[in-house]
């Protein structure tokens, strides 16, 4: 499906407003295949809106978003999306396996799952280390576990581009380490875009960082420093670099 030489995601001259209040303007962004990009920025800065524009869930007022050279809506089956788990109704009766199987929809006409779909769903669940929760009710597991189930659902899509919205919110350090390792593994074969508040997480995993505050500026992660964060957030932010050996005695995690 991808055109030769096409970037995974290309955004040019993007402008988007809610009720005439500009949320994003003059946004240009190019994400190459197998890139790993982290989107950071203050609350209300337009991070999630940018993600939804890439997914095709919102349409730009001006400018263009292309996924592998085509409109996002046409490429939606190639996008794996992990929303925030808090987005879900806590009383909805659905099991963990049923949630992950939703990632297998859209592969053929009709909505029946085959044995192969169940196998892929179970493999995805195993990848996030939650095979033992297969039959549990989604709302009855912890927030961190729900976040991992949603990651497993995105993996079950077998999509080439993964977009994650705040995947480290409400998960403990050990789970975050597991997520870090999983994303690093997935990045060998997939393009990964993550929205996060966790600047430390961004600094330790991603190749590039996109700072979003109505406009977007991208930098190599190596350039991320206190001055840049101060400019982005308008105040000092504690940057905890997650070197993923911080649990070890004597390691220096603070920067």
């Amino acid at each position: 499906m991808s055109g030769a030489g096409q970037p995974a995601i290309q955004i040019s001259g993007l402008y988007f407003a809610y009720d005439r209040v500009p949320i994003l303007e003059a946004v240009d962004l190019r994400i190459e295949e197998l890139d790993s990009l982290c989107i950071v920025g203050p609350n209300g800065g337009g991070k999630t809106t940018l993600l939804k524009l890439i997914l095709g869930l919102l349409e730009p007022d001006r400018g263009q978003v292309l996924v592998r050279g085509r409109q996002p809506a046409e490429m939606r089956l190639h996008l794996g999306y992990v929303p925030q788990y808090s987005h879900y109704d806590p009383l909805f009766p659905v099991t963990v396996l049923d949630v992950i199987l939703m990632g297998r929809l859209g592969r053929r006409l009709g909505g029946f799952y085959r044995a192969a779909d169940r196998r892929v769903a179970r493999d995805s669940l195993a990848l996030v280390g939650l095979s033992h929760l297969e039959h549990r009710v989604f709302s009855a597991i912890s927030g961190g576990q729900r976040q991992r189930v949603l990651i497993a659902r995105a993996l079950a899509c077998e999509a080439e581009i993964l977009l994650l919205d705040e995947p480290t919110a409400n998960i403990d350090m050990e789970t975050e380490n597991q997520l870090f390792n999983l994303l690093r593994e997935l990045n060998r074969t997939r393009t990964i875009v993550v929205v996060t508040h966790d600047v430390g997480f961004a600094s330790s995993f991603f190749q590039r960082i996109a700072c979003v505050n109505r406009r977007v500026a991208t930098h190599p992660v190596a350039e991320l420093d206190g001055r840049m964060i101060h400019e982005l957030y308008g105040s000092d932010v504690a940057l905890i670099r997650h070197d993923h050996h911080c649990g070890k005695k004597g390691s220096d995690c603070g920067v």
Binding site: R76, P83, F92, L105
Partner: peptide, 22 residues
């Protein structure tokens, strides 16, 4: 019976269901 999985997906998470081509 015919559309159980699609209706479940749309009821649980409309955005994700749309992304899966529904």
């Amino acid at each position: 019976l015919l559309c159980y999985n699609q209706l479940l997906a749309v009821s649980f998470d409309q955005e994700f269901a749309w992304l899966r081509g529904l």
